[in-house]
Design a protein around this nucleic acid. Structure first.
Length: 258
DNA sequence: ATGGTTGCAACGCAA
């Protein structure tokens, strides 16, 4: 591997956002782009438009909700579309090997609110993820885990940590689960390279949240230790969030070099 | 304490 540029973007409907994704690919020229919330069944996936842009693509979709894709310059092998030992009707995981790097694309459940069934589902999902990632580390040394984690890890990742204390996306059990991921062998690439930067990857559509920069950093790129030392740059591209009809999330980009 | 915005798809559900 000489240099490698990878990004994650929750597009909140690939049907609506396809033109923006194609424009962004042309500008940013990543080697890999992991998408979440495509909201497309596989039969409706825009394979040709993506191939014409010079990318191969794998995807795992469902009707109306969720849905994952990985776009890449080079072919994807060893594809997994769900946890091996956990039946989940929701399409939230897509993993593959690209250029000898294990890429794990995640759309961790939102959780709604901490008193809800969906929050319990989120915590159960995070437990499965822990098992899965430990197992992945047995088989691969070079791993990138990226996507919409729906977890803000620390105070600095939240516009107003006092207001968000105990709330979903920032509750202790969720943040503990994130810390556990780091514990088992991953680095929060953005935070490693930008230790004091208070920037966000998601802003609610409501209440002019983006204009007021009322947001959270919930989209992440984690690197296994073998790769983390090769990551030279990690940043959030806010520009697409300023466009007409934007996704509520911004892309997060990481660049690796020998 | 509630509401606000978007996408899907058909009006409430999920985020």
């Amino acid at each position: 591997m000489r240099s490698f540029k990878i990004a994650t973007w929750n597009v909140n409907s690939l049907r609506v956002r396809l033109p923006q994704v194609l424009n962004w690919l042309a500008d940013a020229q990543p080697d890999v782009l992991a998408l979440q919330e495509t909201k497309l069944i596989d039969a409706d996936f825009p394979i040709e438009a993506i191939q014409q842009a010079g990318y191969q693509v794998i995807f795992s979709g469902q009707k109306t909700y969720n849905g994952m894709a990985i776009l890449s310059r080079r072919p994807a092998t060893n594809i997994i579309t769900g946890f091996p030992d956990y039946e989940d009707p929701q399409r939230r995981l897509l993993a593959a090997v690209i250029d000898d790097i294990r890429i794990v694309n995640l759309y961790i459940p939102n959780g709604d609110n901490i008193h809800s069934e969906k929050y319990q589902y989120k915590l159960a999902w995070l437990k499965q993820l822990d098992v899965f990632l430990k197992n992945e580390l047995q088989g691969h040394s070079q791993i990138i885990v990226l996507g919409d984690f729906n977890i803000a890890p620390d105070d600095i990742d939240v516009h107003d940590p006092k207001q968000w204390a105990g709330k979903v996306l920032f509750s202790e059990p969720e943040r503990n689960a994130f810390r556990d991921m780091l514990q088992v062998g991953f680095i929060d690439t953005f935070r490693q390279l930008n230790p004091a930067e208070k920037v966000f990857s998601w802003w609610d559509y409501r209440m002019n949240a983006f204009k007021r920069n009322v947001g959270l950093r919930i989209d992440h790129v984690l690197s296994s230790h073998a790769l983390a030392s090769q990551c030279v740059k990690c940043y959030i591209d806010k520009l697409p969030r300023t466009h007409e009809r934007p996704s509520d999330h911004a892309p997060v980009i990481a660049e690796y070099h020998d």
